[in-house]
Write a protein that binds this DNA or RNA. Sequence first.
DNA 1: TGCCAGGCCGAAA
DNA 2: TTTCGGCATGGC
Length: 291
Amino acid sequence: MKNYYSVTDCKSYIEIRGGEYFSPRHTFECGQCFRWRPDDRGGYSGVAGGHKARIWETDGGFAIDCTAEEFAAFWRDYLDLGRSYTDIAAAFDTDDFTRQAMEFGHGLRVLRQEPWEALCSFIISQCNNIPRIMKIVDALCTGFGEKKGSGEGAYCTFPTPERLAALTAEDLSPLRAGYRAGYIIEAAGAVAGGGLDFEALRNMSTEEARKETMKIRGIGRKVADCFLLFGMGKMDAFPVDTWMKKAAGRYQGSKDGSGFGENAGIAQQYIFYFARSTKIEKQVDIAVPQV
DNA sequence: TGCCAGGCCGAAA
DNA sequence: TTTCGGCATGGC
């Protein structure tokens, strides 16, 4: 396991080499996030934490169209580059199912998303399909987020809880989110009003944080666990006995015998394996060298 | 046209 | 404690 990333400044972008293999496709299309889109050049463009970027694979690693400073300040943590997924994968090389799961999702990383964006996005995800989730999230950002940049580089940030808390379900009707609109506004109110305190949740056990999150109407076990894993970095949010049994059932029931197809749902179950891995993972040194 | 999608809520059993 | 219908909407 290499734990050292070399960052090369290529003027309009930086290239990261020497770390673990990172798959933009597996990472951005597995269903853990909803604001990244593939482009016709093989890369992915997305907005996170108020930043916009394009990420693509290179011969020796991957590249981001940002500065080394921006990488160090935001993208490095967002992409969870300080965690050794190689070690995690090695620890799960125990049986056919887990081995194929790891192979299928090779290069996938669990993104460290903004808490509010993760919570709101997974409220929208309930009883919904991924293309429509992305469509609603996009409409939410376009309609109520902050507009940044200009021309082709223009984009909208994810709307703040304060902004959404001031709205009514009717205001959100252009989103066509259905009954989820009310849930969004209630959650926004809880966050903006301090009823759901992200910093306090960080200091709680996963179980306590889950209980606290589920006090909000419209947030059940599934949404809460997605929020805790993807938004709060609580890597043990998904109990293996609950979620992996589902994944195993779908794996064994696959018609072509290949196990894992191009299925975002299955890929997410793969993430749950990572979620169970904190006990064996190692933190690595990711100091960014001079460019 | 009908089924279903990465749920949740609340009532009834 | 578990089960089940209803909820909005749109993709297939």
